[in-house]
Design a protein around this nucleic acid. Structure first.
Length: 310
DNA sequence: GATGCGTGGAT
DNA sequence: TATCCAAGCAT
């Protein structure tokens, strides 16, 4: 660090990340213009609501699995008002097997908040967006950028991996967004909002299809020659174990099995039918059911029948 | 800041 | 087969 402040004579005020990273923007955007996938939420006719729906669905779920559910969702609920007019349980049912059904619940709650507080219009500022249920730092920036072409850093796992490799020279980013990530992304952000929005989409796309986690296609990368990680000889990740969480036999799996019964049944089911979905561990089943009730994903009707939220 | 929260395809 | 990973968020 100290070495940098003394070494830079001409433009010492500029953050070092700008020197290292600004050259990335032009080639990545140029590549994006020729290589971008044709995804429905990127088309000119995609509404801010459509962008918002896609962002919720894409949180932790791959594009190929989102596509059919996204299309059906927007056919049925083309506006926030349309979704808000139906019970939250219908959103959970339409969510299908995308996973993390609380996202469906939050998307429904966000639609209601848009209807209530924003006259049915998806807000266009980061602060208003971030006030909505299920909208955090990434999603607020993404909607502002993609739907409204605002100038904002957009840090998802793809972009953070691209920056980790190209700028920081390490194989993987930290498990979650760090202040250093924000500093680097801010330093690279183009001045013009339209350019910033395109860079956001382009850098995300690069991480999704070229600079992938497992087997990066560096031979197809437009900035391989500028990449710090490549220049360093692609050193392997050196740090604590990155994830390692099994799913089989967890409470999450039990919740998923219980909810699947209700998703596939219109109306309510008796307790016995729900219980049949998870018999390997009774205590675990009760824990799962209790948590689903506590989350409001499941409700009890007249005594001993269960249903998705009405 | 660490945890909990679904699901399924790829390796 | 087991593990990794996929446009995170809320608590």
């Amino acid at each position: 660090m100290a070495e940098r402040t003394t070494a830079r004579t001409t433009d010492a005020a500029r953050p070092p990340e700008f020197e290292q990273g600004s050259e990335l923007v032009t080639p990545v955007v140029a590549w994006y213009r020729t290589a971008a996938r044709d995804l429905p939420w990127r088309r000119p006719d995609a509404t801010p609501w459509a962008v918002m729906v896609s962002e919720f669905m894409l949180q932790q779920t791959p594009v190929v699995r989102v596509l059919p559910v996204y299309e059906a969702w927007l056919d049925r609920w083309p506006t926030p008002a349309a979704l808000a007019a139906e019970p939250a349980g219908e959103a959970v049912r339409a969510w299908g097997r995308l996973g993390y059904p609380r996202r469906a619940q939050r998307l429904h709650a966000a639609a209601s908040a848009i209807e209530e507080d924003f006259d049915g219009v998806v807000p266009d500022t980061y602060e208003d967006l971030a006030s909505l249920p299920g909208v955090g730092e990434y999603t607020a920036g993404a909607i502002a950028s993609f739907a409204y072409k605002k100038r904002h850093i957009v840090l998802d796992t793809n972009v953070r991996r691209v920056l980790a490799r190209a700028v920081s020279g390490v194989e993987y980013p930290a498990p979650s967004t760090t202040p250093a990530d924000r500093r680097i992304a801010t330093a690279l952000l183009p001045e013009q909002p339209a350019d910033a929005a395109e860079w956001a989409a382009a850098s995300m796309e690069l991480g999704a299809v070229v600079c992938t986690a497992r087997t990066p296609r560096c031979d197809e990368c437009p900035v391989a020659s500028l990449c710090t990680w490549v220049a360093a000889g692609k050193p392997a990740y050196d740090g604590p174990p990155r994830r390692g969480q099994t799913y089989e036999g967890t409470d999450r799996q039990a919740r998923g099995r219980l909810l699947a019964v209700l998703r596939d049944t219109h109306g309510s089911v008796p307790r016995e039918e729900l219980e049949a979905a998870w018999t390997r561990d009774v205590a675990q089943r009760e824990r799962a059911l209790s948590s689903l009730l506590a989350d409001g994903l499941v409700v009890v009707l007249d005594g001993e029948r269960f249903a998705l939220a009405q």
